[in-house]
């Protein structure tokens, strides 16, 4: 059942990816701005012959649909062709170099968000309208209503500059960069058993990660809180209490597990937003990841690079939702995958 479900969902990914790539393709090609002109930039006297040569080199002289077909064919086997703006490098190389940074930041923000949101939501639900609940609810509302770029700036000023607790830019103290295994500095430093490097990587992730996690954590916390309040009122929880089970078990084993069921899909949805927020946060913090790469690639009309990045976002989004559905089914025996 599971294998078929996942397989089916992965098949559904294909039309989505084709659709996404087609939108990017049309947007990039139908709006003015010529990659060749960008490539030549301030270059001096350029002959039309030179422009034509480059144009045919990159296949830009062919009809649009032919270009799109060729792109699709190559992309299907993982070949996005050469990058227009990163001279002499393939799109795959450029993306592969940036991908670990963004993956690390996103996973960190995700983990941070969950670690803040679930305990806060649970504690808040235990005494609704109590002091903690009020504080947490207000904080969550602020988190939802705060523009990420502004929060990022404020965090930089307060924690980076005034208090000097946390670094503002970069991914790790360069003297501590661990041997490359996954490209995720936190993971690599753990693999190398290097605590100092791990700590440094964490500190560098803290500010952009917090700015990125804020809205997601806020939404998730509210969801956990409200579904916990609902669950705690249910008969079986009351029954478990009546049986004399310790309160910790009542909450941890019975209530929380059921309260998490509706939370899973919210988490997936919010993580999708996390991904899109990543472009702004990476720009604010000058973080060397995919988001900033995308912003730069668009400015340089680097079509293939933009395509690749958008596809990665799309794939991540779809996989996230798939994962949420599977997890949802795992937590909730009533749900059958179909």
């Amino acid at each position: 059942m599971w294998g078929r479900f996942v397989g089916h969902r992965l098949l559904q990914l294909i039309p989505v990816l084709i659709g996404v790539s087609f939108i990017v393709f049309l947007t990039m090609h139908l709006t003015p701005g010529d990659p060749i002109e960008h490539m030549l930039g301030q270059a001096g006297r350029i002959t039309q012959a030179q422009i034509d040569e480059l144009r045919s080199h990159y296949g830009l002289d062919r009809p649009l649909l032919v270009q799109y077909g060729l792109f699709l064919g190559n992309a299907a086997v993982g070949d996005f062709g050469p990058s227009y703006s990163h001279q002499g490098r393939s799109v795959s190389q450029v993306v592969a170099e940036r991908f670990p940074a963004t993956l690390e930041l996103t996973l960190f923000a995700f983990a941070l968000g969950i670690m803040l949101a679930i305990p806060a939501g649970v504690v808040a639900s235990l005494r609704p309208h109590g002091r903690f609940d009020r504080t947490a609810t207000v904080t969550a509302l602020l988190g939802i209503s705060m523009p990420g770029f502004w929060l990022g700036i404020m965090l930089m000023i307060v924690f980076g500059l005034r208090l000097q607790w946390l670094p503002i830019s970069g991914r790790i103290d360069l003297a501590l960069v661990p041997q490359y295994v996954t490209g995720l500095h936190t993971v690599d430093s753990l693999l190398a058993g290097d605590g100092a490097a791990f700590w440094s990587a964490l500190k560098h992730l803290a500010l952009p990660g917090l700015a990125m996690a804020a809205p997601m954590a806020a939404m998730v916390m509210r969801m956990v809180r409200s579904s916990m309040i609902g669950v705690l009122g249910q008969d079986y929880v009351q029954f478990a209490r009546a049986k004399g089970l310790p309160e910790r078990d009542v909450i941890g084993k019975h209530a929380l597990r059921n309260a998490l069921i509706p939370t899973v899909n919210i988490v997936a949805l919010q993580t999708g937003l996390l991904l899109s927020g990543n472009m702004i946060i990476e720009t604010v913090f000058q973080y060397p990841g995919l988001g900033k790469l995308a912003v730069d690639a668009i400015a340089a009309a680097d079509y293939p690079l933009v395509q690749a990045v958008v596809l990665i976002y799309a794939v991540s989004y779809v996989l996230l939702n798939l994962a949420a559905d599977v997890l949802h089914a795992a937590l909730d025996p009533r749900v059958r995958l179909a």
């Binding site: 039309p15 989505v16 991904l275 702004i280 995308a294 912003v295 668009i298 990045v309 958008v310 799309a314």
Partner: peptide, 17 residues
Amino acid sequence: DTLLAFPFLIFALAIMA
């Protein structure tokens, strides 16, 4: 499905650029 998977900011950036 397609639009949901599409990062809106990229679209905005491309048009605005």
